[in-house]
């Protein structure tokens, strides 16, 4: 049996099923990250100083321990990947599959670049022995950025599928394929959106 309403909107909701499904999933994601953001806020307002003591050294600002230029670079990479993602979808609407492959490929590479930069950041923390167990600041830093990183990996799996084997659908059911790319985009933009809040709160405040 085929899943209904993958292309045409349902009469009662006005949207195709996958779109409503992804928005409901994103609603649950808002609660997940919302809970962790609350944890961050309460750890922070309950701390006499932030980031505070780590390995006997006192840090007055998050930017003294975290790498702001690298995080700024990552912010630009993610914002750029959101644009290429939406351009990939728009290319399909214009019937330009070659452009789709280019933009989706760039989106995938941007995700990879984000993770590579993140790996360098984590690496330099580990080198200094700055592990999650050392302080509340490091614990919430690794939890929030780690969970966000897992979301980037998840998005790359979906985008990689739509770029590789999943792209066969363009030949058989183009309208459904366009919708798949649109909902994958909704998720990818959400991952970008989470980072937009994570970056100033963790690195700059």
């Amino acid at each position: 049996m085929d899943i209904p309403y993958t292309i045409t909107p349902r009469a009662d909701t006005g949207v195709y099923n996958a779109k409503l499904g992804v928005w409901l999933f994103l609603a649950s994601e808002v609660m997940l990250f919302g809970g962790l953001f609350s944890a961050y806020i309460f750890l922070r307002i309950g701390a006499p100083e932030w980031p505070g003591m780590i390995h006997g050294e006192s840090f007055a600002r998050a930017s003294d321990i975290l790498n702001v230029p690298l995080a700024t670079l990552n912010t630009m990479i993610l914002i750029g990947s959101s644009v290429t993602m939406v351009l990939a979808w728009a290319s399909l609407l214009l019937n330009r599959f070659d452009r789709y492959r280019l933009y989706m490929g760039l989106t995938f590479l941007a995700g990879l670049a984000f993770l590579v930069v993140k790996a360098f950041e984590y690496g330099s923390k580990f080198e200094h022995g700055y592990l999650p167990a050392e302080s509340n600041f490091l614990a919430i830093y690794f939890t929030l950025t780690g969970l966000h990183g897992l979301h980037v990996i998840g998005g790359m799996v979906v985008n990689g599928y739509l770029l590789g084997p999943g792209a066969k659908m363009w030949k058989t059911k183009p309208a459904q394929f366009i919708n798949r790319v649109e909902v994958a985009g909704l998720y990818w933009h959400f991952v970008d959106l989470v980072w937009i809040f994570l970056f100033p709160t963790i690195y700059l405040l």
Binding site: L20, V83, G185, L186, L193, F197, P200, L205
Partner: peptide
């Protein structure tokens, strides 16, 4: 910081996620 982040998030949600012209059910969610 949060004001600028909210403006950025608003731009992403409105234009990239098409919320400027979405159906009622999505706004409801």
């Amino acid at each position: 910081g949060l004001l600028i982040a909210s403006v950025k998030a608003g731009l992403v949600a409105a234009y990239f996620m098409h919320l400027v012209s979405e159906r009622k059910v999505i706004y409801g969610v």
